[in-house]
Design a protein around this nucleic acid. Structure first.
Lengths: 195, 195
DNA sequence: TGCAAAACATACCAACTAGTATTTTATGTC
DNA sequence: GACATAAAATACTAGTTGGTATGTTTTGCA
């Protein structure tokens, strides 16, 4: 990787780091560059403005980051519903980069930016669709091999699962990790009802 | 009500209005007062600083506002689970003051402020607890009269329901009202599994 | 009716914001 | 090694922010 590409990448990664803890709008460009050996000239050489940087952050940091935990993890056990349970449990309790206090980077950005910036909304919708589509496909395959009842709507279930995850990320911000533990118990009950 | 109390109230209500659409941190004091016949002197006479106003807004506008739709509505049909379904449906699809684009005022504020301001976190936790406690009580009564299985944990279900609601408010910001309709179908299935 | 306190109005400030204009340095290519 | 361009550094600006200092008006009440 060229030095220029490395500069661009460090900006995006530091931005992601700060945005996760402070929100996008509360993270200033000065915030980002002051924690790196990067000046404002470099920042605006690589990005036309702050929003272009934010969109690049979604596509080049957040999208690749989520794949292993939200998509590739599906298929790691013999049981499809257990896979899904483990995916959510992994995200909530086992992922060392995520903190109940700060929630989920994607959920946070949707909450903050979708209503006020149409380009962010679209980019974040792509992110969420990638997850939902993977879940839907996983559920359909489970229906074929008899692990999930054929009477259920895979697409709807996929959306319901992501909604539940988003929601407990919100509740977790006020009640902490204990909310995750309680949620997972009810989530398990829900998943079992799909067999 | 005294004129001074009225001034205070209009500030809080206009703040709520703007915060709902723009978020708390993106709503400036100038924003609020410029849309009213109120000056900065009046604002800082009634509130020590912006955050004290925000906390007053939670306790004096948001908390009373939520009660009819989130608590008193429980008990309006003969069936406890139908009550809960209608409550969520009412919030998502029938409430004219809420918009899928902007989500739910309480969920938004939790998402934004809980991680960065401990006082906001506590005030919002009280808000959420009031809802969860009402749901829990409602579920316990339903268990006694045989409308909900006694094997279920009412407190956990109450939290799970609020998490689901929070989550679909998030998803709704990117997919719009159609997400609400889909969610409600799955939510109904979940509720029925509790009988 | 007088007067103190409450309620508000006005003018201001220092810190911070995204973004620009201009200059300097690094890098690859012939 | 010359030269063009990419990459980055520096200094600046206009606008916005929460908050303050100080002055004026309104209100309740002795």
């Amino acid at each position: 990787m060229s030095k220029a590409a490395a500069t661009r990448e460090t900006i995006l990664k530091k931005a992601f780091d700060l945005v996760y803890r402070q929100s996008y709008q509360a993270t200033s460009i000065d915030d980002i560059i002051s924690q790196l050996q990067v000046t404002k000239g470099a920042f605006f050489y690589h990005f036309r403005n702050k929003d272009m940087m934010g969109l690049a952050m979604i596509r080049e940091v957040m999208a690749p980051n989520m794949e292993p935990y939200m998509i590739h993890v599906l298929g790691s056990t013999p049981d499809a519903l257990e896979d899904i349970y483990q995916m959510v449990k992994g995200l909530l309790l086992l992922n060392p980069t995520l903190d109940s206090r700060y929630g989920c980077p994607a959920v946070n950005l949707i909450e903050e930016m979708a209503p006020v910036n149409e380009e962010f909304r679209k980019a974040l919708m792509q992110l969420m669709l990638k997850w939902q589509d993977a879940l839907e496909k996983h559920l359909r395959e489970a229906q074929i091999i008899g692990q999930v009842g054929k009477e259920h709507d895979a697409k709807q279930i996929a959306m319901y699962i992501t909604a539940g995850y988003s929601g407990i990320r919100n509740i977790g911000k006020i009640f902490g990790n204990q909310a995750y533990v309680n949620y997972l118990q009810q989530f398990k009950i829900y998943l079992e009802s799909l067999r």
